[in-house]
Simulated assay, not measured.
Amino acid sequence: MFRDLQRMTHQPKWWQLAYTRDAKLIGLLMPTVSPTYATIGYIGVLPEQRGNGYIHPLLRRATELLLAAGQTYIRADTDQQNKPMAHAFLRAGYRPFASRLEYSLVRSP
Score class of each variant (00 low, 15 high):
Q49A: 08
A18D: 06
S34M: 07
Q49L: 01
R61E: 11
G53H: 05
Q71S: 05
G41W: 02
P31V: 10
P57R: 01
R61G: 03
G44R: 08
L46N: 02
T20E: 13
H56V: 10
A38K: 06
T72Y: 00
E64I: 05
K24N: 11
A68S: 05
A38C: 07
G70S: 04
Y42L: 12
T72D: 02
A69E: 09
L28F: 14
L28Q: 12
G53P: 05
I43R: 09
A68N: 11
R21T: 15
V33H: 04
S34V: 00
G44W: 12
Y37S: 11
P57W: 03
I26C: 14
A18N: 09
Q49V: 03
G51T: 00
G51L: 00
T20Q: 14
T72G: 01
K24A: 15
T32D: 06
R21Q: 14
T20N: 14
G51W: 00
L29A: 13
K24P: 00
P31Y: 12
M30T: 08
R50G: 05
N52S: 02
A62S: 01
Q49D: 10
T39N: 07
S34N: 09
T39P: 01
E48K: 05
Y42P: 00
E48T: 07
L65F: 12
L65Q: 08
T39F: 03
A23F: 14
L59V: 00
T63P: 04
L59S: 02
P57C: 00
T36E: 08
Y19L: 12
L59M: 03
T36C: 07
R61C: 07
L25A: 14
E48F: 14
E64S: 07
A38I: 03
I40L: 09
L29Q: 13
L25D: 07
P31M: 09
N52E: 11
T20Y: 09
I40G: 04
P47K: 08
A68C: 00
L29K: 12
T32N: 11
P57L: 02
T72F: 05
P31T: 09
L67D: 04
A69W: 06
H56F: 01
Y42E: 10
L28D: 07
T36R: 07
L29H: 04
T32I: 15
N52T: 00
L67E: 08
L46S: 08
A18R: 15
L29F: 06
S34L: 06
T72M: 05
K24V: 11
I55K: 01
R60D: 12
A38H: 06
A18H: 15
Y42S: 09
T36Q: 07
Q71I: 11
I40A: 09
L25I: 15
H56T: 10
I55V: 08
V45D: 02
A18M: 10
N52C: 03
R60K: 15
L58D: 05
Q71R: 09
